[in-house]
Amino acid sequence: MNTQEVANRLIQLCREGKNLQAIDELYDENITSKEPKGTPMEFTEGKDAVKGKTVEWENMVEELHSASISEAQVAEDFFTVVMDMDVTYKGMGRMAMKEIAVYEVKDGKIVAEEFFYKIPVMAN
């Protein structure tokens, strides 16, 4: 798949709530994942570790009120999307969050992802 096709498939799977399937299908074995500096999952390496951090995040969620992902903007081997979430976390309350995700694609697989966001604020 080319970069646009990978982006389209990721968006489709995320919109269907199939995040683990997206990792299985689209991520390279040696994927690197970066979150903002100082966050608990600042740097993760390897497909299994990225799946683990995704499962850990899902286990923290008490209720997902809404989530959306934009269409992709593609530039050669890179694409970016905007993600919006309104989530109630177990023991932490409800938080609204907007982030920009940047992905790098090589040989039809996502080899790197990086997320840009501010620490979520409590919605109520």
Rank of each mutant, 00 (worst) to 15 (best):
M1E: 10
T3D: 05
T3P: 05
E5S: 15
A7R: 00
A7M: 07
N8Y: 02
R9D: 05
L10I: 06
L10S: 02
L10R: 14
I11N: 10
I11H: 12
Q12E: 15
Q12S: 14
Q12C: 06
L13D: 04
L13W: 06
L13A: 05
L13Y: 09
C14E: 07
R15A: 07
R15G: 11
E16I: 03
G17C: 10
G17M: 09
G17D: 10
D24T: 12
E25Y: 08
E25K: 10
Y27R: 03
Y27G: 01
D28M: 10
D28A: 15
E29A: 14
E29V: 10
N30G: 08
N30Y: 10
N30P: 03
N30I: 04
T32F: 00
T32R: 03
K34A: 12
E35P: 02
E35G: 01
E35I: 04
P36I: 07
P36W: 06
P36L: 03
K37N: 01
G38S: 09
G38M: 03
T39R: 09
T39Q: 11
M41N: 13
F43P: 00
F43S: 13
T44C: 07
E45P: 00
K47Q: 06
D48G: 02
V50G: 00
V50S: 01
V50H: 04
V50D: 02
K51T: 09
G52E: 10
K53A: 06
V55L: 12
V55S: 07
E56R: 04
W57Q: 10
E58V: 04
E58Q: 15
N59R: 13
M60L: 12
M60D: 05
V61F: 06
V61E: 05
V61Q: 07
E63Q: 13
E63N: 14
L64I: 05
H65R: 11
S66R: 12
S66Q: 11
S68E: 10
S68F: 04
I69T: 15
S70W: 11
E71D: 15
E71P: 03
A72L: 08
A72Q: 10
Q73R: 11
V74T: 13
V74D: 07
V74C: 12
E76Q: 13
D77M: 05
D77Q: 14
D77G: 11
F79D: 08
T80F: 02
V82P: 01
D84L: 08
D84A: 11
D84S: 13
D84V: 06
D84F: 12
M85E: 11
D86Y: 09
V87E: 04
T88D: 01
Y89N: 02
Y89M: 14
Y89K: 01
K90V: 13
G91C: 04
G91W: 01
M92C: 02
M92F: 09
G93V: 07
G93M: 05
R94C: 00
R94L: 00
A96G: 12
A96L: 07
A96M: 06
A96V: 11
M97E: 01
K98H: 08
K98V: 13
I100K: 02
I100H: 08
V102A: 07
V102K: 02
V102D: 00
E104Q: 15
V105S: 00
K106I: 01
K106A: 09
D107W: 06
G108C: 06
G108Y: 09
G108I: 11
I110Y: 00
V111S: 01
E114P: 00
F115R: 02
F115Q: 03
F116H: 14
Y117A: 05
Y117S: 06
K118S: 13
K118A: 14
V121G: 12
A123L: 11
A123Y: 03
N124Q: 14
